[in-house]
């Protein structure tokens, strides 16, 4: 185990919640095996669909609660893209909304007790971030051709500084998928592990009240983090998209 303190019946397994295991049986995990990851990915998709499809079933002019929330999510992402990347960015609205809905529901469903948090896995967030990275790079070259490289050649800076800046810009460009994926997964891992550690302390009667209060507080904080991280992921995607659409500084 990651941190094992077996003294006095106190045991911490804060990382057990992240273990990928098959849903049926106990065999090895092949690429097609339905695992807990599969289950929670499916639940994430179903929750998103429930909100955006079933919630708007009424197509009401005066919306009910679910439809209001769905419209709010739609409006939030729509406005974000329009404000940051401009009107042309709206072509990629469906994918960015898919990303946002996926991340926000994966984060929130992960907070359900006994749940598995898919966004706490670097494999998941890495694929999401790489998809954004490659997508944005392809869009950048397709829209601007070689001019996309202007992104790295800061024309507003003095000529002497430009090569240095270009190196920095190239490095920061390639670090993007890494920072994007690790930021999300790291936030999720840390929050869940801390809640688990506090929950472990609740086994000791003396500190149990403090531990329980701490778990409640952390939980509330994690709800905030879940939404904020989804927002950050989406807004950074929009910023990268803006760079691809308008590479000149």
């Amino acid at each position: 185990m990651a941190t094992e303190a077996t003294g006095g019946g106190l045991e911490f397994h804060p990382m057990d919640q992240f273990v990928v295991s098959p849903l049926f049986g106990n065999g090895p995990v092949a690429w097609y095996t339905p695992t807990n990851v599969t289950l929670w990915l499916a639940l994430t998709a179903l929750a998103s669909i429930a909100l955006l499809v079933l919630g708007t079933r009424g197509r009401a002019i005066v919306p009910n609660r679910a439809q209001s929330v769905a419209e709010m999510a739609y409006g939030l992402v729509h406005k974000m893209i329009e404000d940051i990347a401009g009107k042309e960015g709206l072509r990629y609205f469906p994918y960015i909304l898919t990303l946002f809905m996926f991340v926000v529901f994966a984060n929130l469903l992960g907070l359900v007790p006994m749940a598995f948090t898919v966004t706490s896995h670097i494999a998941i967030t890495g694929v999401l971030a790489l998809a954004v990275f490659f997508g944005v790079t392809i869009i950048g070259f397709a829209k601007n051709g070689a001019h996309f490289l202007d992104l790295f050649w800061v024309r507003s800076a003095p000529l002497a500084v430009r090569p240095v800046l270009a190196v920095i810009e190239v490095i920061s460009y390639f670090v993007r998928p890494l920072s994007l994926s690790i930021r999300l997964a790291g936030n999720m891992i840390a929050g869940h592990a801390v809640i688990k550690v506090f929950a472990g302390f609740a086994a000791i009667a003396a500190v149990a009240p403090i531990a329980i209060v701490a778990v409640v507080g952390m939980y509330a904080f994690e709800v905030l983090v879940a939404i904020v991280q989804a927002y950050v992921f989406t807004i950074l995607t929009c910023v990268y998209l803006k760079d691809a659409l308008h590479p000149s500084h």
């Binding site: 990928v20 995990v29 092949a30 690429w31 097609y32 095996t33 339905p34 695992t35 990851v37 599969t38 990915l41 898919v118 896995h121 494999a123 998941i124 694929v127 999401l128």
Partner: peptide, 9 residues
């Protein structure tokens, strides 16, 4: 487990 996760994702 990466292959599994990526496939289902």
């Amino acid at each position: 487990t990466f292959g599994n996760q990526i496939f289902w994702l």
